[in-house]
């Protein structure tokens, strides 16, 4: 009940206009789709895939958020898969318990502190630049917190474990003999992964990706702290509406839109990669 009630209130308020306090419940307070329509207003130029088209500004922020979240998910998958595979090979399940506790220690620290730590590390005169200059990778400071760099780094760090956990557990459940059987039949390292390990881990990969995507797209702290003036995350738009413009009604409408559109993106991706819902749950 406590979970459902606020949501119902949210849905309800999203269909009401934003009015001064004294007009609430007055004659102009009727149900309307105006809040949702606002999402499609105020077109601005938007360069995407080499084309320049006019897109409503909030839709543009939404698309950017989704694309960067997909990008973050892809990076996390690319780093997380080998990491999980390596862990499966080198760490026995009994040691894994200890290892995971060590891994989750950063999770005990609040997200604000973690993001702030990254803010410090990535800052212009911060330790990362100092280190990279020291070992000669770069020869002058790089402005990491520029565009979406900071957000991407922050999100990858923050949500990595949400990929590694499900991947590790699905890899752990694969019979090692199957890997050897594939190799015995002539499979190269790469083909063994592609034909045997990845198909087996598909549920883990899918649930990891869905989780990471949703968390990244819905993250507020990371984009707020590690974002730059020219990076915009959709959650920040909602926050501005609710806390700065105090327009809770449009904020509610946007939240719902965001939730349903993200769900739509996930479903579309699952359809594109031929994943069934049952793959995740079993």
């Amino acid at each position: 009940m406590l979970i459902i009630l606020p949501n119902i209130a949210l849905i309800e308020s999203s269909f009401r206009p934003y009015l001064p306090l004294n007009e609430i419940d007055g004659p102009r307070d009727s149900y309307t789709l105006a809040n949702y329509q606002r999402f499609l207003s105020t077109p601005v130029g938007f360069d995407i895939f080499g084309m320049s088209i006019d897109v409503p500004i909030h839709l543009r922020i939404f698309i950017t958020t989704v694309l960067y979240s997909i990008f973050v998910t892809a990076i996390i998958l690319i780093i997380g898969y080998p990491a999980a595979y390596y862990m499966t090979k080198t760490i026995s399940p009994s040691n894994m318990a200890i290892f995971f506790i060590v891994l989750t220690v950063p999770m005990w620290v609040s997200e604000i502190l973690r993001s702030f730590a990254w803010f410090t590390i990535l800052s212009f005169k911060g330790p990362l630049n100092a280190l990279l200059i020291e070992i000669g990778v770069i020869n002058s400071e790089v402005r990491w917190i520029r565009g979406y760099y900071g957000i991407i780094i922050g999100l990858v760090y923050t949500y990595m474990l949400f990929m590694v956990f499900p991947l590790y557990s699905s890899m752990q459940s694969l019979d090692k003999n199957q890997i050897e059987a594939a190799q015995d039949l002539g499979a190269s390292w790469w083909r063994t992964h592609w034909r045997v390990i990845v198909p087996h881990c598909k549920p883990g990969i899918v649930s990891g990706c869905v989780m990471v995507f949703m968390l990244s797209a819905g993250s507020l702290l990371v984009p707020s702290l590690l974002g730059s003036p020219n990076s915009l995350w959709f959650t920040q738009t909602i926050q501005q509406l609710m806390l700065e413009a105090l327009d809770w009604n449009t904020g509610a409408a946007y939240s719902l839109l965001f939730l349903s559109l993200c769900t739509f993106v996930v479903v579309a991706m699952m359809w594109a990669f031929k994943v069934k819902l049952s793959d995740i749950t079993n």
């Binding site: 019979d175 003999n177 199957q178 050897e180 059987a181 594939a182 015995d184 198909p199 087996h200």
Partner: peptide, 12 residues
């Protein structure tokens, strides 16, 4: 070619 004790067929 090795035939494994548990056969290790590919279930998928």
């Amino acid at each position: 070619s090795l035939i494994f004790q548990n056969l290790a067929l590919f279930p998928l």
